[in-house]
C-alpha cells in the first residue's frame, strides 16, 4: 500500500514525542534524511544509521520499516 504525507507526518510526530527530552536524536534523524536526499548515503546506509539511532525503540523501527522498499527491513531485536 502507498503511504501518504499524513503517514509520514504522523510517524515524525511519534519520533519527536518519544525523544522529547533528547531533541538531538530527531536532529540526527533529519541529518540521515538529508544525506539520503543528497545521495550521500543509499537505502542500506539509511537502514544502518536508523537502526543504530532507534535501537531500543522497536515501535519506531517497525514504523520506519513501512517506508522501506520491498526487500528491505530493519530487524527488531527483542
Amino acid at each position: 500500500q502507498r503511504l501518504k504525507v499524513e503517514d509520514a507526518l504522523s510517524y515524525l510526530d511519534q519520533v519527536k514525542l518519544q525523544f522529547g527530552s533528547q531533541p538531538q536524536v530527531y536532529n540526527d534523524f533529519l541529518d540521515i534524511m538529508k544525506e539520503f536526499k543528497s545521495q550521500s548515503i543509499d537505502t542500506p546506509g539509511v537502514i544502518s544509521r536508523v537502526s543504530q539511532l532507534f535501537k531500543g525503540h522497536p515501535d519506531l523501527i517497525m514504523g520506519f520499516n513501512t517506508f522501506l522498499p520491498p526487500g528491505y527491513k530493519i530487524e527488531v531485536q527483542t
Binding site: 515524525l12 539509511v46 522501506l68
Partner: peptide
Amino acid sequence: MAAPQLVMLANVALTSEVS
C-alpha cells in the same frame, strides 16, 4: 532512487523542519 516512500518521508521531514 528506488525507494519512493523513503524519499517521501525524507521530503516531509525536511520541509516540516521549522523550528
